[in-house]
Design a protein around this nucleic acid. Structure first.
Lengths: 142, 142
DNA sequence: ATTTGATCTAGAGCCAGCTCTAAGTTGTAT
DNA sequence: ATACAACTTAGAGCTGGCTCTAGATCAAAT
């Protein structure tokens, strides 16, 4: 239904990014060089658009641009370099699981602090400031 | 038991940061100017150390340095500006809950993709590449 | 014909949170 | 006495992912 090819402005609008971002993706090699018309302007083909869809979806899945490059590389090299793709996704899944554990605990801590603060008496010190002040000082995933 | 005051190197080691980081925190006002000895070298007092503990714990709780400044501000202004502290923590809790929702769904998606890939036949296309290629292109919290 | 708006390139700037460099001073060990 | 480590400052550099600027060119509308 959509009538590709499109200008950079149209593509930018379609994906909710700026033209700067599109040129940036191209510059860092995330998008292949976009073909130009006689006036030297970019004309995005439907496969460019597809690639952008892929990029934006992968970004939603918390893949970095570098990781997305790797995924696209996998896609290009052969129609199924499954082990490579599996590795990348498994790693990401591991990261996500770690983050989940971290956030679950953090949520508990924060909501405890908040409740303590809400139910604390007028004259008492703030349980939040105290709470952060007194907790353990351990390393955390960053 | 610990014998403060301490040199910048000792403090850096204690907190697992570099001396650069400590000076950086001071430069951006996260730590108050550390007093200097006769040779112009920083001498960290026990209250400086306490503040650092606070900073590092708050960082573990995903507060940005800017947010930590705000928390420290709250602490300084009065021994209990509870509403302010509550606001900051409630906001952070909201962010954490949003992230959790996001990650829970993402974890599902990734593990589905991984399973599909593991159980896919030799000749088939990679379900991971296909999966990312075909999903919805929606905005996500960033 | 002129203005407006979209596009082009090259390159600088921004934010967070460090991280490092250079050139100089001081404290400690042998 | 001299080497060497730890410290000082000011300021530059780094990563990631944009974001913007300047100056030029080009296309469409009035």
């Amino acid at each position: 239904m959509s009538l590709t090819p499109s200008s950079i402005g149209a593509v930018a609008e379609k994906f909710g990014v700026t033209v700067h971002t599109l040129r940036y993706y191209e510059k860092i090699g995330l998008l292949a060089p976009i073909s130009k018309n006689s006036a030297g302007r970019r004309v995005y083909s439907s496969s460019d658009i597809e690639r952008l869809h892929f990029i934006k979806r992968a970004q939603r899945m918390h893949f970095s641009l570098k990781e997305i490059s790797a995924l696209l590389e996998v896609e290009r090299n052969s129609s199924r370099q499954k082990p490579q793709a599996q590795k990348l996704v498994a790693e990401k899944l591991g990261e996500i699981e770690d983050s989940l554990q971290d956030l679950i605990i953090l949520k508990e801590d924060l909501s405890n602090m908040l409740n303590a603060c809400l139910s604390s008496g007028e004259g008492e010190d703030c349980p939040i400031i105290e709470g952060i002040g007194k907790g353990p000082t351990k390393d955390a995933p960053r």
